[in-house]
């Protein structure tokens, strides 16, 4: 019995391929002040991922919000070894574009289906940044 596989097609933000277990949130993420780069953990007080680490996960989220320190905060996660494996998001802005570039994590946006509706936390996700393809293997 093979697991159910779904393929989403979108646009390259950062090239490269990576795969891992998905961490999905329907809430935008703050960088500076919203995450602790040393642990890769969301620290924003009212966030649904409060206390959860995205380290080595494929982060699937609506987009970036908050301080202009977004890129710096995610850049630091790369140095600290706590960065997400890959990123998939919906709404483009300067924070996430720059943040994804300096995090060096394969990243895709503008997908033909809403990744927040398709991907659930725990699914296995492969992101091919260069081809803009996201392959989702459902956990169930």
């Amino acid at each position: 019995m093979s697991a159910k596989k779904i393929v989403l097609r979108g646009r390259k933000v950062v090239g490269g391929c990576a795969e891992g277990e998905a961490l999905v949130t329907k809430e935008t993420i703050s960088g500076w002040g919203g995450i602790d780069p040393m642990t890769g953990t969301v620290i924003e007080t009212h966030h649904e991922l409060h206390g959860v680490s995205f380290r080595d996960r494929v982060l699937v989220f609506p987009g970036a919000k908050g301080s202009s320190g977004w890129s710096n905060a995610f850049h630091m996660t790369r140095l600290a070894g706590t960065a997400p494996k890959a990123m998939v998001f919906n709404r483009m802005n300067t924070k996430i574009a720059l943040g994804a570039v300096v995090t060096h994590a394969p990243t895709v946006t503008d997908l033909d289906q809403d990744p927040l509706a398709v991907v659930e936390t725990g699914d296995w996700v492969r992101v091919d940044g260069d081809r803009g393809i996201v392959e989702v293997t459902k956990k169930r």
Binding site: S67, S68, G69, H75, T94, K95, L98, V101
Partner: peptide, 24 residues
């Protein structure tokens, strides 16, 4: 960069900037 300065720059002064980051 600096989100509070960016919003002041665009809204109150009418100058034009996105929220840039350290690297940009």
């Amino acid at each position: 960069m600096e989100s509070s300065a960016v919003v002041f720059c665009n809204s109150v002064l009418g100058a034009r900037t996105n929220t840039e980051g350290r690297e940009s």
